[in-house]
């Protein structure tokens, strides 16, 4: 009994804060999504109409597809690259390793609205270092009107921004591997590949689960950075789910925005849930 009281006292402050900033607003969004809202005191119950309208619209489906594709590209680049860099870093001299970790952490401390500004300045063909280099090589980089170039710019920028998180968390898992394991593998004459497959990968899996989820969610709902690059263009080629949602909010279409928000949240929760199911089943087996 006493223990229960202590436990409650320890958890209560955190639960209260999360209730206020997360649960209450989420319930409010859920409620708005069933209403047609002209102003906050003029809301009319319309049931599932927003959901029907959104789910059957091309606009929603194509931005959902774009967001999924974007997350797919981001994960398939950043996760292997991050692991590879971590594998190199943990084998460096400790001083260089710390230096490398500090380096990859740098982009994490740049305010999000400045990241696109920095990159736009970098690829500017008149004044940017990369822009002038590309112009010098006769390579016409046109992120404004060529969809592929806009995508490339956003993907490279996002990799620059977030690779540090993957590297830091992968390094955390790798440095937890006891040295005797490596020595045993060396005595057995295990190849580099075998060491990775049987010693490093299993250790990485646990720590990387969370990175995979964080990178999925953050790339799936990318807003600030993507919007500032080309406002979803050219021709809506980079209009991701959250940019669509932003449009609705800017147009004061709160009911529809809430329904879109709930749908995005649903996708996120489903993916997280499925992911946890798959990984825990693997662990129990």
């Amino acid at each position: 009994m006493r223990q229960t009281i202590t436990l409650g006292a320890l958890l209560l402050p955190a639960l209260l804060v999360m209730g206020f900033v997360a649960v209450l607003p989420l319930l409010a969004v859920f409620n708005y999504s069933f209403h047609d809202i002209f102003s906050l005191d003029q809301a009319y119950w319309i049931g599932l109409e927003w959901y029907e309208e959104i789910v059957t619209s091309d606009r929603f489906l194509s931005s959902l597809a774009r967001s999924l594709l974007f997350s797919g590209v981001i994960l398939s680049i950043q996760i292997p690259l991050g692991i590879a860099l971590a594998l190199v870093l943990v084998r460096l001299h400790p001083v260089l390793r710390v230096l490398g970790l500090m380096l990859v952490a740098l982009p994490l401390v740049v305010p999000w609205n400045m990241i696109p500004m920095i990159w736009l300045a970098l690829v500017n063909p008149d004044t940017g270092l990369a822009g002038r280099a590309m112009a010098g090589m006769g390579w016409a980089f046109d992120y404004k009107f060529t969809a592929l170039h806009t995508w490339a710019l956003i993907v490279v920028m996002d990799t620059w921004h977030w690779i540090g998180l993957v590297v830091i968390l992968a390094c955390a898992s790798l440095s937890a591997i006891p040295a005797p394991l490596y020595r045993a593998a060396a005595i057995d004459g295990a190849s580099r590949l075998a060491v990775f497959r049987h010693i490093e990968l299993p250790r990485l899996a646990g720590g990387l689960a969370i990175v995979l989820l964080l990178r999925f969610v953050d790339s799936f709902m990318i807003y600030t950075e993507a919007f500032a690059i080309n406002a979803g263009g050219p021709n809506a080629a980079t209009t991701f789910l959250s940019l669509d949602l932003g449009e609705d909010i800017k147009a004061y279409s709160y009911g529809s925005a809430a329904a879109r928000a709930m749908l995005s949240f649903l996708v996120v929760v489903t993916v997280v849930w499925a992911f946890v199911k798959i990984t825990t089943r693997g662990r129990e087996a």
Binding site: A14, M18, F20, V21, A22, L24, P25, L26, A28, V29, Y32, L40, I210, L213, L214, V217, M221, Y223, S242, L245, G246, I249, Y254, A257, A258, A261, M262, S264, F265, V268, V269, V272, V276
Partner: peptide, 22 residues
């Protein structure tokens, strides 16, 4: 603990409107 992490993963854009009102 997992539920807490789901909230970490809730996109700010989703909650911006009700948080402003609240």
């Amino acid at each position: 603990l997992l539920a807490l992490l789901v909230f970490r993963m809730t996109p700010p854009v989703v909650l911006s409107l009700p948080i402003f009102i609240l």
